[in-house]
Design a binder for these strands. Structure first.
Length: 752
DNA sequence: GTCCTCACG
DNA sequence: ACGTACGTGAGGACC
């Protein structure tokens, strides 16, 4: 059987979806020599549908892997031969590779054969700009039609159908939003629109009983039996598990020893398709794409302090709610899957979103050890310092007030004490931010004291107090959650707790990192990209002077200062360098005279002069900014080097909104490309460090933190550094080196 | 719930 | 004339 006949024989899982996913994937697999094995395995399976699904799922997994390390070991001649003989449609390939990857691939093939690379069309047929449409003939939602599964025969029927089908949408109901403590209450499954079931396993009775929630509700199978029956399905590589934010369900089930693989995630599909356009929560997606408002969870568990846990929800109500969620997820998946290709974000989803899920799940479950005693001691010390400062502040103010209230502070400073410059914001309140107090500090002692008080109050409430509450009772570690769709640019967000904003800039704050420790006999290793965003800017905008400075390993801010102010590097002063640094950051953020002036505390005209000079010396920057704005205005989105789309719906707005949108559009490809790079590193990391006694713990945008047995730290640094520095390759050949700095120590303060 | 403030990259 | 640096999350005050 050759590739063509395989492609012709295969269909996509989704009705109406183009069947080229399998063709392209199979073609690539053939290139890498694993098709035979695939076909052997598929041949053992009798049911045609399941055979196709196996091929498709395996193909997708292989494709993900291969795209991430596309040409590391590619047999170049074979590829060209295959491409010529099979004549794959470039548009088809473009749907799976980013344009950049495809261009790289074709260019290399052409180079090898010394021929001209083929012309590549820029736009996809079918309209890359087309908005996802809702299903034309959608089955109405009927929550009374969902099945309550409560015996083995019924469960077996569902399992048999799922095995035949090769995919299932599923959802778990639990007792907590915190996966590390959540207990499984039930599982819902859906195999077709309108067809869904709920399998309750942990519902209790007596919601009004003070000691209620302990007596087991009727109509349930034992949890162990259900998990034992479902586990083979959930771990079966030929059965795709579809979820909405499936990382949550996978983490809960992992605590029961059940692995979930392979997966698709409608939340991540929505993000790949529509980052910047709208939210990706299920309720919003359901309303937008299915025209259906799901049953609000509030209707079942209430809200606020009186909210109950899901185990106390009556089983009959839970069936409707839970099965509906699985039903919605399945319908969204059917809508989104073909859209990925049409919008040319398949490779974004396949290489940057889908494979990151298990990596993040593992990091979150691992957690990081935090020393409670250290935090507790710091909290006590902070409390004392705050009390002392508060007394001084009240003394200076001539009476007591709530130092933590910006409103009261503003009245004290500007009304009572009559200090200058009391500016009110949009809401009519006095501004008392750090920059304002900093200026006032020259007038009076009080603002400085308030600044000190605020710094300590922040450290205590947000860090030394709050972090203690996040130490898991069983693991003794802190387990953050990463939100993969948290930032429109492709960055992650960290919540509950946020471990991406642990203090580092101030000496006092940095000490909090001493509480983040390695286990006995281990060390923490921190690796961070040096100036990655400026390097990406130099690459994207093609600024020769910047590229040269990076290639020569120069101090980039000093080099910028030298170029701008005509100061030889040998005569560079810290202050000139500081100004150039601010300008470099400003460029990344979509610079404005006002913003730079405020940041540097210089007159606006002077700041504008700096910017003009900068554009003069680095003209490519202005070209990049103009081109990016023009692209956003024309297309409604901007792109990273790896094909990620960030939509800019406000780009054509009038008024101040336009400025915001333009600066965001300028920043997004830079910040987003950096985010893509570290994602690629993270996805490759588990395989790269396999066999080393090391675990990846945290990501902080341009930094990865590991815990490793002390004796293996140097080896880990060597391996992980290489993965990070080569993470853009081979999809993107950077014109400047990506450099990673490393550190190690007993705690995060030492490692950083 | 919203605003203000401030922690990070 | 206007009002601005990009991207986040969390805690406390206040309505």
């Amino acid at each position: 059987m050759d590739v063509q006949s395989l492609a012709g024989d295969s269909v996509d899982n989704v009705p109406g979806a183009p069947g080229i996913g399998i063709k392209t994937a199979a073609l690539l697999i053939n290139e890498f020599g694993s098709l035979e094995e695939l076909l052997d395995r598929a041949g053992e399976i009798k049911q045609p549908k399941r055979r196709e699904t196996l091929i498709d799922n395996r193909a997708q997994i292989e494709l993900s892997k291969r795209l991430v390390s596309l040409d590391c070991d590619m047999p170049m001649e074979t590829t060209l031969e295959e491409l010529e003989v099979r004549d794959p449609d470039p548009d088809t390939l473009l749907g799976f590779l980013t344009e950049m990857e495809f261009r790289t691939l074709t260019r290399r093939i052409a180079d090898a054969l010394k021929v001209e690379p083929p012309a590549i069309k820029d736009e996809m047929p079918g309209g890359a700009e087309a908005a996802p449409e809702t299903a034309p003939e959608m089955l109405p939602f009927d929550t009374s039609a969902y099945e309550h599964v409560q015996d083995r025969a019924a469960l077996d029927r569902w399992i048999a159908e799922i095995r035949e089908l090769g995919y299932v949408a599923f959802d778990t109901e639990t007792t907590s939003l915190d996966e590390m403590v959540a207990e499984l209450v039930g599982v819902s499954l859906s195999t077709a629109p309108g067809k869904a079931c709920y399998i309750p396993v942990g519902h209790t009775l007596g919601t009004d009983d003070l000691f209620g929630g302990t007596e087991r509700a009727d109509g349930q199978m034992p949890l162990e039996e259900v998990l034992a029956a479902l586990a083979p399905i959930l771990a079966d590589e030929s059965i795709l598990k579809i979820g909405q934010n499936i990382k949550y369900d996978a983490k809960v089930l992992a605590n029961y020893g059940v692995s979930v693989h392979p997966i698709d995630d409608t939340m991540l599909m929505s993000y790949a398709l529509n980052a910047g356009q709208h939210g990706h929560g299920m309720d919003a997606l359901s309303e937008r794409y299915l025209g259906h408002n799901p049953i609000p969870i509030k209707d079942l568990i209430g809200s606020g302090k009186s909210a109950i846990t899901f185990d106390r929800v009556p089983v009959a109500d839970a069936v409707r709610y839970a099965a509906e969620d699985a039903d919605i997820t399945l319908r969204l998946w059917q809508l989104f899957k073909p859209q990925l290709h049409r919008q040319q974000v398949t490779s974004v989803y396949e290489t940057l979103e889908r494979p990151l899920v298990p990596v993040l799940a593992q990091m979150e479950r691992t957690g990081i050890k935090v020393d409670r005693d250290t935090l507790s001691r710091m909290s006590n010390a902070f409390a004392q310092q705050m009390a002392g400062l508060e007394a001084e502040i009240h003394e200076l103010a001539g009476g007591p007030f709530n130092v933590g209230s910006p409103k009261q502070l503003g009245e004290i400073l500007f009304d009572k004490m009559g200090l200058p410059g009391g500016k009110t914001g949009k809401t009519g309140a006095y501004a008392t931010g750090a920059d304002v107090l900093e200026d006032l500090a020259t007038e009076h002692e009080l603002p400085r004291r308030v600044l000190d008080w605020r710094q300590i109050a922040k450290l205590k409430s947000t860090y030394t107090d709050a972090l203690q509450d996040h130490i898991n009772r069983e693991t003794g570690r802190v387990h953050t959650s990463y939100v993969q769709t948290g930032a429109n640019t492709g960055r992650l967000a960290s919540t509950d707790p946020n471990l991406q904003n642990i203090p580092v800039r101030s000496e006092e704050g940095r000490r909090i990192r001493e509480a983040f420790v390695a286990e006995e006999g281990k060390v923490l290793v921190s690796l961070d990209y040096s100036q990655i965003e400026l390097r990406i800017l130099a690459h994207i905008a093609g600024i020769e002077a910047l590229k040269d400075a990076f290639r020569q390993g120069q101090d980039i801010h000093a080099a910028t200062a030298s170029e701008m102010f005509n100061v030889p590097l040998a005569e560079m002063t810290p202050d000139i360098r500081r100004q150039a640094k601010a300008i470099n950051f400003g460029v990344i953020y979509g610079i404005s005279g006002f913003g730079l002036a405020r940041n540097l505390r210089i007159p606006r005209a002077e700041a504008q002069g700096f910017i003009d000079r900068y554009f003069e010396r680095f003209p490519g920057i202005r070209d990049y900014m103009d081109a990016t704005k023009a692209f956003a205005k024309e297309h409604g989105y901007v792109q990273t080097l790896f094909g990620r789309k960030i939509h800019t719906p406000e780009i054509n707005a009038k008024g101040p909104t336009a400025g915001f949108a333009q600066r965001a559009a300028i920043n997004a490809p830079i910040q987003g490309t950096a985010a893509d790079v570290i994602r690629r590193a993270m996805i490759r990391m588990p395989d790269a460090i396999e066999g080393l006694p090391a675990k990846m713990l945290l990501q902080v945008h341009d930094e990865l933190l590991f815990e490793v047995e002390a004796g293996a730290a140097d080896k880990l640094i060597a391996v992980a550094k290489e993965v990070m520095e080569s993470a853009a390759e081979p999809a993107v050949r950077m014109a400047v080196p990506l450099i990673v700095d490393a550190g190690q120590g007993a705690n995060w303060a030492e490692a950083h």
